[in-house]
Design a protein around this nucleic acid. Structure first.
Lengths: 167, 167
DNA sequence: ATAATTGTTGACTGCTTGGTACATAAAACC
DNA sequence: GGTTTTATGTACCAAGCAGTCAACAATTAT
């Protein structure tokens, strides 16, 4: 009963995700976004509402595609916790110029906008909890386990930020 | 033989440093900078040339005021290496919203501009070398020492980025 | 066919940005 | 006191930004 889409919104969203990943929220201009997504500005706003909303949806997609597998790796139980943690850190690409969208956002957009702050904080907390779970057998004391999970989370963020900075 | 300054350039530079520290390079607008520095735009450009140059000078000042003391702490020899490393990490403010200008820049401006990239990379390397020196007695193998210094550097960056993100 | 609905397009708006130009003010030298 | 020198203040500029809007196109229903 109306004109059909000339593009796939999910494909467009994935393209937007990669722009935000590469350039960060602030430096990702709408012109760049619409070029990468292959749509015009009006369509972009009709579908996604605002730049911030587009980012939040792109961030969700990133979580599904890249954060969740890492968390699964840390929390699955078919190998020892320390082995899973090792595996997790080995998975970090050594020359990924884009870094990690979660870490990039923590260092960037999350500071300016409280909605972005919230979703970023939530994912960092998920990661911390995943580390904590992976440590449950080898570190019996709950407080110590928590602080070790915090350290591992910080180490992960630091690695990704540094690799990105030096790339 | 000419009109004297109505302000102290060093005081103004320090004010600029705090703006860059709080807001980051991109979000620090010239309007904010000139307000904080208490000077007008013409004077700012006559004295500092460009926003980037002002940042580079402010960054130098930050290194003198905040990075060098940390490096001294790590490399002075009146206590054991592990004690100095502990001391270094304990020195990190637990609720510093601004984080660390070096780490913030590594995650931000350093990616866009190659001059900024260079000065940031240099300071990160200094920090890494300072950790390495602090480890010299307890870690005999040079390769292992190097990689442990890398880990400590990444942990430091991650801590400061995370503290800033969650503040 | 025609009407109704909804996606598409691209020009347009108002705003902010970093940077510049120029008239003016304040000092020192002669 | 006039000249020179350099800082100050401000109006201005082009470019880029996020976001809007109205004409247009493509489909379905009647």
């Amino acid at each position: 009963m109306a004109r059909p889409y000339s593009y796939d919104p999910e494909v467009a969203l994935e393209a937007a995700m990669h722009v935000f990943w590469r350039d960060g929220y602030d430096l990702a201009s709408l012109s760049e976004l619409q070029d990468a997504m292959g749509i015009q500005r009006g369509s972009l706003y009709k579908e996604f509402g605002s730049k911030k909303n587009l980012f939040l949806k792109a961030f969700d997609l990133y979580v599904k595609q890249f954060v969740n597998p890492g968390i699964t790796m840390l929390t699955q139980s078919d190998s020892s916790g320390s082995e899973r943690i090792n595996q997790f850190f080995k998975m970090i690409p050594k020359h990924e110029m884009r870094g990690c969208l979660l870490c990039n956002s923590a260092a960037g957009a999350a500071r300016t906008d409280s909605d972005v702050h919230q979703v970023v904080a939530t994912q960092i907390e998920r990661l911390r909890n995943a580390f904590e779970k992976a440590l449950i057998k080898q570190t019996k004391d709950a407080k110590e386990r928590r602080s070790e999970a915090e350290r591992l989370t910080q180490l992960y963020i630091g690695k990704r930020v540094e690799i990105r900075a030096e790339a």
